[in-house]
Design a protein around this nucleic acid. Structure first.
Length: 493
RNA sequence: GCCUCCAUUGUCUAGUGGCCUAGGACACCGCCCUCUCAAGGCGGAAACAUGGGUUCGAAUCCCAUUGGAGGUGCCA
């Protein structure tokens, strides 16, 4: 059996689209699973859309994700070069061979003429398909124009009758009536091959055995197969992938601003989570497993698990995966990843903050790193809050009675020796026991008084510790004053 | 318009003629735990697009309808 060779062939646009990452991933997984080779090829035949530095983004992203390629522009390999613009001169002879065998022809129609004919066809309510106008030029006419240096393109000469079909490993049998096949351009006026042509030539020359790509190529594949046949080349296996959608109607598009790999990384999504989730949009292992490392994906991946229908990219589920991965992070790793976000949150604060302790509290609650600043902001500045927050039915607390609880705690905290979490916890609990109160009746108001929030990461003890003695007591004083102001002095104490 | 493809809960999906009173996961809701939240545990609501066939039997096969996607570029 011949070695499996897959390829990822992006065009360098400057960003890595998540759909592209997934395509690369499946190619990578299949090659590794089969013990084959994964090839990276850059498709930059469109000279008008060149973006400087764009290939670097592709390298960086793939490497960052752990998808190492065996052959590629920067790595070499026996089928190079791996950048199509570097292969420019190699395509024309193949096109000329096709012309000799009658499978292609020179076309001298200008873009303007084409546009005119297209408009005319549309005016008549017809679809425009290239009319093979130049196919009927006499040999002499063609020679003359070529000699005269009239600009030309080379078009594929597709059959007008019958149908062409092929078998796709995901979609099964696909057949297209030949009369719907357009005589597509193979070589452009600037001498560059089109994607359509370069793809076929390169995939063959590079010995690609399995072509895994987006399903937008499903209906142009018959034209590629006609080319393979014209050359007498073996047709590779096709694996067309369902589209990744933003919602039911729309593709995940570059316009959305959140379709790029880098967008998610900078928001604080872990690449492991992104890869894990992406693998599952359009593929499933056949059992209920969901958590996969890259190596596990390699083991589990199989083309039979690929689905046919488009899948919607669900950020909620990605976020769940992300939270899972964050929780599993070794603590030191979490701390180092969270620290920049902590620093951002506490910028300009004069108090010290125990990042380690904060990180311990936050690791299990972090879904995406960019949500950290908002979650910990209350530690920097006391938020404004409504006294209603002191209401809690279960804790049996209310604004009217909150001051009593706070006044009970205050001297305990003031008398505290070392300001450690354990000390705070033990002394306050002792006092609660002594008074025969319920924990919540004291701790709820205390937490509200020093955080101003209904929900906080950590409880009263943790927050008090993080705030430090001075800030805690200051917040406590202010809370007591405000409550007494509203409801009068309590009579406990 | 024409061509191709697709169609199970809100979402990702399992399901390849009887194992399906349709399974798992996210999200949602409730309960437990608990000083809040989160995590965790338990439970709940939620789907075979519609209509015809085929068959003893259909989510599964066939046809039509509807809906959706893709293609129809000297873009890839």
């Amino acid at each position: 059996m011949t070695e499996v060779r897959t390829r990822f062939a992006p065009s360098p646009t400057g960003f890595m689209h998540l759909g592209g990452v997934r395509t690369a991933l499946y190619n990578y997984l299949y090659a590794r699973k089969m013990g084959g080779k994964f090839i990276l090829r850059i498709e930059d035949t469109d000279q008008e859309r060149l973006v400087p530095g764009a290939t670097q983004v592709i390298y960086d992203t793939l490497r960052d994700c752990g998808m190492d390629w065996d052959e590629g522009p920067d790595k070499g390999g026996e089928y190079g070069p791996y950048i199509q613009s570097d292969r420019k001169d190699l395509y024309l002879p193949y096109a000329e061979e096709l012309i000799r065998s009658g499978h292609a022809y020179y076309c001298f129609c200008t873009k303007e003429e084409l546009a005119e004919r297209k408009a005319a066809a549309e005016a008549r309510g017809e679809v425009f398909k290239y009319d093979k106008h130049c196919l009927h030029l006499s040999k002499e006419e063609v020679e003359r124009k070529l000699k005269a240096g009239v600009p030309y393109v080379i078009r594929q000469n597709t059959p007008t009758e019958g149908e062409t079909s092929y078998k796709d490993m995901v979609f099964g049998e696909i057949s297209m009536p030949n009369d719907t096949l357009d005589d597509m351009v193979l070589i452009k006026q600037d001498g560059m091959p089109t994607y359509n042509f370069a793809n076929v030539i390169d995939d063959h020359l590079m010995g690609i055995t399995h072509i895994m790509r987006g399903m937008e190529y499903l209906s142009s594949t018959p034209k590629y197969n006609l080319l393979y046949e014209a050359f007498g080349w073996e047709i590779p296996k096709y694996v067309h992938l369902p589209t990744v959608m933003r919602d039911k109607e729309h593709k995940l598009s570059k316009r959305d601003g959140d379709a790029y790999y880098s967008d998610f990384i900078s928001k604080g999504y872990l690449k492991e989570a992104l890869i894990n989730y992406l693998a599952l949009v359009g593929w499933n292992p056949g059992d209920d497993r969901e958590m996969f490392t890259m190596d596990e994906l390699v083991q589990a991946f199989d083309i039979s698990g690929l689905s046919k229908s488009p899948g919607i990219f669900d950020v909620e589920k990605l976020t769940w995966f992300n939270a899972q991965y964050i929780r599993q992070l070794p603590f030191e790793k979490y701390l180092s990843l969270a620290t920049p976000w902590f620093e951002k949150a506490f910028e300009g604060m004069d108090r010290q903050m125990d990042f380690r302790r904060l990180a311990e509290l936050m690791q299990g609650r972090t879904e995406v790193f960019n949500r950290i600043p908002e979650m910990v902001a209350f530690l920097k500045d006391m938020p404004a809050y409504e006294l209603d927050l002191y209401f809690n039915k279960k804790m049996k607390t209310a604004p009217e009675t909150a001051a009593d609880a706070l006044c009970m705690v205050k001297p305990v905290l003031e008398a505290l020796g070392p300001w450690t979490e354990a000390e705070i916890h033990d002394r306050v609990m002792d006092a609660i026991q002594e008074k025969g109160l319920k924990n919540g009746a004291v701790l709820w108001p205390l937490r509200i008084a020093i955080s101003g929030l209904a929900n906080t990461p950590g409880g009263a003890f943790e927050i008090a510790y993080l705030l430090g003695r001075e800030e805690t007591l200051a917040r406590l004083d202010r809370a007591i004053a405000r409550l007494q102001d509203a409801y009068g002095k309590g009579n406990v104490q």
